[in-house]
Amino acid sequence: MKLFSNSITTLERALDYSSVKQKVISQNIANADTPNYKAKDVSFKNMLQQEKELGLNACKTDSRHFDFYGSSSGTNGVYTRNDVQYNHNGNSVDVDKEMSDLATNQIYYNALTERISGKFQTLHSVIKGGR
Rank of each mutant, 00 (worst) to 15 (best):
T122A: 12
V20C: 00
K60G: 02
H88V: 12
N46C: 00
F44W: 06
K97Y: 08
S125N: 15
A58D: 11
V95E: 00
V42F: 09
N36F: 07
S71P: 01
D94M: 09
D41N: 12
Q49M: 14
T9W: 03
L123W: 00
Q50F: 02
R115T: 15
R81W: 05
K38P: 07
N28H: 06
S92F: 05
K119F: 04
N31S: 05
A30F: 10
Q106K: 12
Y37C: 03
G74T: 13
Y17G: 06
G70Y: 05
D16H: 06
D62N: 15
A58K: 13
A58S: 14
S125C: 01
S18I: 04
L3H: 10
Y17W: 10
E98N: 12
H65P: 01
C59P: 02
K52L: 14
R64I: 11
D67W: 00
T75A: 12
I29N: 06
L56V: 14
D83K: 06
Y37L: 04
M99H: 11
I29M: 07
S100Q: 05
F66R: 13
S63L: 08
T61F: 09
S125A: 09
Y37K: 04
V78E: 05
K21Q: 14
L112M: 07
T61I: 09
D33W: 00
G74L: 09
E12I: 05
V24P: 02
E51W: 00
T34A: 02
F120N: 02
G55Q: 05
N36E: 13
V95R: 08
G118I: 04
I25V: 08
F44H: 04
N105A: 07
V24W: 02
K119A: 14
G118M: 10
L3V: 15
G55L: 06
A30I: 11
N87F: 10
S92L: 07
G130H: 05
N105T: 03
L11V: 05
A39W: 00
Q106D: 06
H88W: 03
A39S: 15
L48E: 09
N110A: 14
N89A: 03
L54E: 11
Y17Q: 04
L112D: 04
Q85A: 11
M1P: 12
K45C: 02
N91W: 08
Q22L: 07
D62Y: 01
N82S: 13
S19R: 14
N82K: 14
E12N: 15
K23Y: 03
L112T: 02
V84W: 00
S19M: 12
K2C: 01
L102D: 00
A39Q: 09
